[in-house]
Design a protein around this nucleic acid. Structure first.
Length: 472
RNA sequence: GGCGGGGUAGCCAAGUGGUAAGGCAGGGCUCUGCAAAAGCUCUAUCGCCGGUUCGAUUCCGGCCCUCGCCUCCA
């Protein structure tokens, strides 16, 4: 059995078969961050999810090209740029840098490509022109260009592929901004927005005059430019299903007339949101964590990562500090186990065994629409089993090396960085002094040294093979 | 109002038509000079009410609660 994923297009779990005739190459596009501020952990849940998808596809032997865009021009950014007095790039660079730093802290691999909206103005304009030529875009008197859903439909296309849309029942217009009054229909959306005074110095020249791209067009332009008019997998948060992704489909299929049977995107996957302490994250509730907030509380990126991928991606997940505390314990159990294995291998290495309970259990779980919860169960079953063998000394160095290789194999997907720390010489000296005191049955002295070590952040354990020092 | 998710032990969270994984927390035990680590062990009948069935947490209907999208949003 191979990988199966839930496709939002069909609302069902389908076998994953790439477009590539050789079944090897996979193109992934993930809607990245809008760099107007520090991203919060809710945003990162989606990016960590995308990272796991990308890693699992690689684990499954696919040759993945992972594209994640940076939206570096948009209403909120423009407003803040003008408030800050900085230039657009000065302003967005800061948050983009922070974003990638956080992404790395969370153990995510760098996407293969990170296109920026502002670097794709040319392709964006080209795309809008195509839409105009196909008769489904119209410009208004002020130099803006809109997408006509009606004309798109009349040309034989379907609007509403990702969700059941009933345009008559929708409640449009609650926040339709004044500058869009020239739209032919409320559901139409902007492809190009003409320059207004509030835009300051943020504008580009176009056939329609000075202005800037609308919100959805950049993703259509960048994804098709980098992955082709038809690609395998598009990811994003569930809130993007409508209107963003639906509009992306409309723009892309409308421009390229995918009506020859090929779809813009074969599989759409959407990650559910994060709740914090049972509630939706919001600034007014004060439950709005950024990664740096959590690091400041003494947590590690990997603990946050573990928590984020401990639940299925399609379920809203309740993120709590208590559970983050628990993640710490769970992670150190894995560390403990792998560190002991490492000591046993004596430098020996081995090949992973694919039909081992760990790898087969993990793979079976992940093949089923990335059931990470079940995958973790396989991991912790393995930890317990391995610990049992370790206590009964049922592992020689070759066996230990194999177990370690198996773990590393699946950890190429989970992406949990191990925390290994070699104790400095002075710590080891103290540990030896303590051992000498113990041999002399001077337990007052040995306990005193143990406290001293603890003060310096080191924990000492007495094992049948002698004392072990580890980071506290 | 329309559309779509959820409600499983103290907390988080999988799953199945035949009495329920895993993690964290808690209790007991083993090991230990004491600890730590590790192991063993204990702790749920699956929101409520009906129905189908030999049998439902899992299928169907109704109800309650909750979350999200429909408007910038991961």
């Amino acid at each position: 059995m191979g990988l199966n994923v839930f496709n939002t297009l069909s609302r069902s779990v389908e076998p994953f078969v790439p477009l590539d005739p050789d079944g090897k190459k996979v193109g992934i596009y993930c809607c990245g961050p809008t760099v107007h501020d520090f991203a919060h952990i809710g945003n990162f849940r989606t990016f960590v999810f995308a990272d796991v998808v990308r890693r699992y596809l690689t684990f499954r032997g696919f040759n993945v090209n992972h594209v994640m865009n940076i939206t570096d021009v948009e209403d909120k950014i423009i407003r803040r740029v003008n408030e800050s007095g900085k230039s657009l790039s000065e302003y967005t660079n800061e948050f983009e840098k922070a974003f990638f730093k956080d992404l790395k802290t969370l153990g995510c691999l760098m996407p293969d490509e990170q296109p920026h909206a502002t670097k794709f103005i040319g392709p964006i304009i080209k795309l809008i022109k195509k839409l105009e030529k196909n008769g489904i875009a119209y410009s208004t008197g002020d130099g803006s260009v809109y997408f006509s859903i009606e004309k798109y439909r009349k040309a034989g296309n379907q609007y509403g592929q990702l969700l059941n849309l009933n345009l008559d029942e929708m409640r449009p217009g609650e926040r339709v901004s004044n500058d869009e009054y020239e739209k032919e229909s409320v559901a139409d959306f902007a492809l190009w927005k003409s320059r207004v005074p509030e835009d300051g110095e943020v504008f580009w020249n176009s056939p329609w005059g000075e202005g800037r791209p609308g919100w959805h067009i950049e993703c259509s332009a960048m994804s098709m430019e980098l992955l082709g008019p038809s690609f395998d997998l598009h990811l994003g948060g569930e809130d993007l299903v409508f209107p963003h992704h639906e509009d992306e489909i409309a723009q892309s299929e409308g421009a390229c007339m995918h009506s020859n049977g090929k779809k813009f995107v074969k599989y759409w996957m959407h990650g559910a949101h994060l709740l914090v302490e049972g509630k939706k994250m919001s600034k007014s509730l004060g439950n709005f964590f950024t990664l740096r907030d959590l690091l400041a509380k003494g947590f590690d990126g990997r603990e946050v990562r573990y928590l984020m991928i401990s639940a299925h991606y399609r379920e809203t997940f309740n993120f709590t500090l208590d559970n983050l505390e628990g993640a710490k314990t769970a992670m150190s159990r894995i560390d403990e186990c792998t560190a002991k294995l490492h000591e046993l291998t004596l430098g020996q290495t081995a090949e992973p065994v694919n039909d081992s309970p760990l790898i087969s259990g993990f793979t079976e779980a992940m093949d089923n629409d990335l059931n990470v919860s079940a995958a973790w169960a396989a991991v912790f079953d393995w930890v317990r089993d391995t610990n049992r063998k370790l206590t009964s000394s049922g592992l020689d160095s070759a066996a230990a090396a194999t177990e370690l290789a198996n773990w590393e194999q699946i950890n190429s997907v989970l992406g949990i960085k191990s925390r290994e720390a070699k104790a400095p010489a002075e710590i080891l000296v103290l540990a030896e002094q303590r051992q000498a005191a113990r041999k002399a049955k001077d337990f007052a002295r040995s306990d005193q040294i143990r406290d001293e070590l603890a003060n310096q952040g080191w924990i000492i354990e007495d094992t049948p093979n002698g004392p072990r020092v580890k980071r506290g």
